[in-house]
Amino acid sequence: MKKKHITGYLLALIISSSAAFAQVSDGTKVGINSGRGLNALKSDVFWTSPTEAPNVIGDFYIDSLWQEGKVKFTSIVPQLGGWNSDSLAGIQMRYNTLNDELEVLADKSKNDIRVIRGSQLKNFTINAGTDPVMYVNAAAFKSDKPLKGFARMVADGNLSLVEYFYPKITKPNYNPGFNTGEKNTVVRQGSDYYVISNGTAEKASLSKKGILAFMKEKQKDVEAYVKEKNINFKNEYDVVQLFKFYNGLK
């Protein structure tokens, strides 16, 4: 995709709900409707930059590489020119778990990065490899401990499996007397699996006991399948096949 298209529709992407929207040409309106976005000046729109995190080091991203994908907003977002849309595709992005922000690369040559706050997104999809990978807003799930951030959809159905990502934060432990320890806050990526049923998320381990506990209603069929297919519960692919089998049972 050409740079002018990337820069154009990204400016329309990160907008304030209270902003007044400028009028644009008919040609630009066609761009909105077709998903190619906007050719608008920076002064025409509101946008936000990534949140600064001074004295914080480590790994902030699920994947630090820029990947092409699409986003779906939690609600319809007014676009410039009067068009409304709840989604946008063909953008370069990466998710920052520490700040709960989806960073969007507007202009690579200028290192121009904008963000969409996690609270504004229902999900986003990365076009990685042969199969798109969807990340859903974990705040939508009911759970004992409220979840904030996004979870990768591993297996989708009446009974779903997701991998929830979160930042693991280590506070500074520098000892000036001995000149030892870390002066900065250190961030690492953590993740847990959750099983989703009727909108409720429960933490689960990838183990036979951990997964089959959620499949008691069809226990005999499931146990027969596990034995026949020699399911390895440490292998995510095998577990996905089991969820597909379970969700396909009447």
Rank of each mutant, 00 (worst) to 15 (best):
Q120H: 07
L242K: 11
D156C: 04
D59L: 07
P167D: 05
K183T: 08
V162I: 15
L13C: 01
V24E: 03
S49T: 11
Q241M: 11
D107Q: 11
E68S: 11
V115M: 09
T97Y: 06
S191N: 14
V115N: 08
I62E: 05
L80Y: 06
A40C: 08
S143F: 01
M93I: 03
L159A: 01
E182F: 05
E101T: 01
G149D: 03
S87G: 06
I196L: 00
T74I: 13
G181E: 01
P172I: 02
F214Q: 05
S191P: 15
K4F: 11
F233C: 10
I116L: 15
A22I: 04
Q79L: 10
M215A: 00
N247V: 00
K208D: 08
L38Q: 10
V186F: 03
V45K: 11
G81L: 04
D63G: 03
L147T: 02
M153E: 09
L121P: 12
V162D: 01
Y61F: 15
N127C: 10
K110V: 02
S143C: 10
S43F: 04
V104T: 15
G149T: 04
T125E: 13
P132S: 10
S87N: 14
Y193E: 03
V45F: 02
K183F: 02
L159N: 01
A155D: 00
E228C: 07
F233P: 11
K70Y: 05
A204W: 00
W66A: 10
V222D: 00
P167L: 03
D86L: 04
N84F: 04
S197C: 01
E101N: 03
R36P: 02
V133P: 05
K203D: 02
L159F: 00
T48Q: 12
N39G: 14
N33G: 08
L242E: 04
D86R: 10
P172H: 02
T97Q: 05
N173Y: 03
Y225Q: 08
F245V: 07
L88Y: 09
K203H: 02
S160M: 04
I196E: 00
K4I: 11
G37L: 05
R152K: 15
Y9C: 05
V187C: 12
S43C: 01
S75W: 07
K2I: 06
H5E: 12
N184R: 15
F233G: 06
E202H: 06
S18F: 13
G190F: 00
K168C: 05
G69L: 03
